[in-house]
Structure formats: structure tokens, C-alpha cells
Write a protein that binds this DNA or RNA. Structure first.
Lengths: 138, 138
DNA sequence: GTAGATCATAGGCGCACGCATATGATTGCG
DNA sequence: CGCAATCATATGCGTGCGCCTATGATCTAC
């Protein structure tokens, strides 16, 4: 494979840049990064135990509780006891939560597009396709 | 631009994976992540003030000192007072430092190639090219 | 020569995180 | 029935980081 800078040395600053672009968007919608991560996960796969959710988004199960509390207080998610197993709280995103999530997502993609605009359409598509492959093959 | 997961949602786990792959390599060579970052920067552009170096690698200038101390103690870099401006310490990588850096780099690239192997050659080249563009246009 | 800027260095503050552990409710297995 | 496992929750610890300030040496501009 050809000579190149370390992958991480290129990817990490890119992620930093993205996060810097996204933080204001999140703040504007009054959602934390973890909160948005939760909303995204729940909007794509509605029901899960909290432990499974934590694992899915790479968070610590003891640290996710505060995030869930906030989201619940804001009416963005619901926690209902599972009638079949009363230890478990079934998690679901509310209509309001879905609305917020989609709004944030749209704004974030706009920011991302500013970065991706540095690539030609062909390059951009190839980049995104490869990235998805790497992401899904994890 | 087409529907897609958030860039950061794909990139961040990728970076985490990379770091997990790299930490053992770094440990084996007894260099910290910041240390390796410094060696890389110095190997590519030999002389700089410490403040400029810190900025170049995205580190805090007050936090970089310990790293430089370690690298110097290990004989991987040299700090010599600039005769022209005695406030400044000229930084340079030693032969030994260059050797270590290249060795680490080779090992890290081997790890990275395991990830990139999930792409076809064409995809991989396109991905890396796009990534370089994004990185350099920062 | 004096004032203000610049450099390396040191230390403190607060935050978020990973990790580990405890507890109380509940379930399911033997 | 009783015991181990599971789940949500709470809490504490250590770490690393970003940020901010201070200090002493030195340089530059006036």
C-alpha cells in the first residue's frame, strides 16, 4: 500500500472539525451529543433495554442515565416499564423527539456538506461509499 | 446530497478502532500517542519553536512539555537553545528518534491495512485520496 | 533604558470519561 | 422455595484534557 500519512492523523482532526461544527447546532436545539446519539439510535431501532442502547452507541451504562433523564424530561423519549419483565424499561422516541432529531440531523448535514464541498461529486460519493463500508464492516 | 448517516457517527468509531489498534504498537515502542505525534511532526519539518509545534499537532502548549521531557530523556529528540534568540529551544529529532518513528509508523500502517483490506483496491485509493484532500484543505 | 511582547515552563481548575462497585427490584432456574 | 443472574440506577475514583494564569528569561521597539 502506498506511502501515506497515518490514517488516524488525518481522521482525528477531521472528526475534531466536525464536532466543532456540530456543537453549535446541538446547543441551538438544546440536545447534548450523547442525547443526539440516543435519539438517533432510537429513531432507527425503537425498542431496547438501556444497557443494550448504551452498548450500541458506545456509552457507559452508568453514564447514560442522566442523558435519558434529560431526554425524558424534555419529552423527547419515553421510558415505560416492560409488562413482560418489570426490571426492564422499554425505550422509545416520541413524536417530538423524532422531530428534534430530524431537525438536528438536517442542520448537521448542512455543516458536513460544507466540508464535503472540497471534493468533487465523484470523489465525494466514493469517499462516502467507502466510509459506509468501513463503518458497517466494523 | 444523498441520505446518509452522520459523518461523525461513522468517523468517530473508526477513529476509536484505529486508536485501539495503535495503542499496543505504541506501548511496545514505549512512546505515548502525543510522543509519536511529536516525532512525526519533527521528522517532517525539523525545526520549530515548541509553541508552534504544539499548535501544529493540536496539543496544548502547557501540556506538551512533559511529552518533550520524556522524548528528550529517551534520546529521541533534542532541545537546543537558539543562539539567535535564547528564549527559543530549537527542536530536532535524533537519529534514534527517527528510527523509532519509522518503526512505529510501519507497524501502525500494518494495522491500518487490516482495516483498509475491507475495501477494494479502487475504493481504497479513492478513499485515501479524498481523505488527504479533506485533511490538507483543513 | 524602559515598557511591552514573546518564549518555555509550571500549576491549578473543572469537566467528561472509563471503570468499578453497590443496591434494590425482579426474574428464572434448579 | 431459594439462589444466582439481570436490569436500572447511583456513586466514587483516577485520568487526561482544555483552558487559564503566573513567572522568569529574553528580545524588540521606542
Amino acid at each position: 500500500m502506498s506511502d501515506r500519512p497515518d490514517l488516524a492523523a488525518m481522521l482525528y482532526p477531521l472528526v475534531r472539525t466536525l464536532i466543532a461544527l456540530e456543537l453549535p447546532v446541538l446547543a441551538e436545539h438544546e440536545v447534548s451529543m450523547w442525547g443526539y446519539s440516543v435519539l438517533t439510535a432510537l429513531d432507527e431501532t425503537p425498542v431496547r433495554t438501556q444497557a443494550a442502547l448504551a452498548e450500541a452507541i458506545g456509552a457507559d451504562k452508568s453514564r447514560i442515565i442522566g442523558t435519558l433523564d434529560e431526554l425524558q424530561d424534555a419529552g423527547l423519549i419515553e421510558r415505560t416499564p416492560d409488562p413482560a419483565d418489570r426490571r426492564v424499561r422499554l425505550l422509545s422516541i416520541t413524536t417530538q423527539g423524532r422531530r428534534i432529531r430530524r431537525s438536528v440531523r438536517r442542520a448537521i448535514h448542512l455543516q458536513e456538506d460544507r466540508l464535503l464541498a472540497k471534493l468533487t461529486r465523484i470523489e465525494r460519493e466514493a469517499f462516502l461509499r467507502a466510509l459506509r463500508t468501513l463503518h458497517e464492516a466494523r
